[in-house]
């Protein structure tokens, strides 16, 4: 009698174990479901064509809102979004600096704020050369000013 009783209890426990396990599984799955796998956003890393496409000096890419700086085969990429209100700073070659037309923020050739309301310097993005010989910019990786991509002409 007692063993019969135990067996029944055991079965019940087993059933409840499975049920709770299922519930637990569903909860975890639902939580995972809430983490998106794909985004409908402009990609943070992208190709910007061959290095030869960018002549010496500062080149502006309106689509991506970045400047590509070519300093004698040394390539660097800097954001073209003013850290103040998000306008696009202009490169003033004579003065060797960026000036934002909206509220007058000024960034020197290292992207550091030297005047105006901008709170932070313009970030430099990592740029690498892909296997297909194209420049590859990764906006998720912000690099110090000293890091350059040197390409032999």
């Amino acid at each position: 009698m007692s063993s019969e009783h135990d067996r029944r209890d055991f079965l019940t426990y087993l059933g409840w174990f499975a049920t709770l396990g299922t519930f637990g599984g569903i909860s975890v799955a639902s939580a995972r479901y809430m983490v998106p796998n794909i985004l409908y956003e402009p990609p943070k890393s992208y190709k910007i064509g061959k290095p030869q496409d960018y002549p010496e000096g500062v080149n502006f890419l309106p689509d991506k809102r970045i400047f590509v700086v070519n300093n004698g085969g040394n390539y660097k990429v800097i954001s073209a979004v003013c850290t103040h209100m998000g306008c696009t700073p202009r490169w003033i070659a004579e003065k060797d600096r960026w000036e934002c037309p909206c509220h007058g923020s000024i960034f020197n050739n290292k992207g550091v704020v030297i005047g105006g309301p901008a709170p932070k310097p313009l970030p430099w993005y990592e740029v690498t050369l892909g296997s297909d010989n194209k420049l590859f910019v990764n906006e998720d990786r912000i690099v110090p000013f000293s890091q350059v991509l040197t390409i032999a002409a």
Binding site: R8, L11, T12, L14, G15, A18, T19, G21, T22, G25
Partner: peptide, 13 residues
């Protein structure tokens, strides 16, 4: 009854 419960819950799991 209990047996069905156990089997069903395991199937679902």
């Amino acid at each position: 009854m209990k047996r069905i419960f156990v089997i069903l819950s395991f199937l679902i799991l």
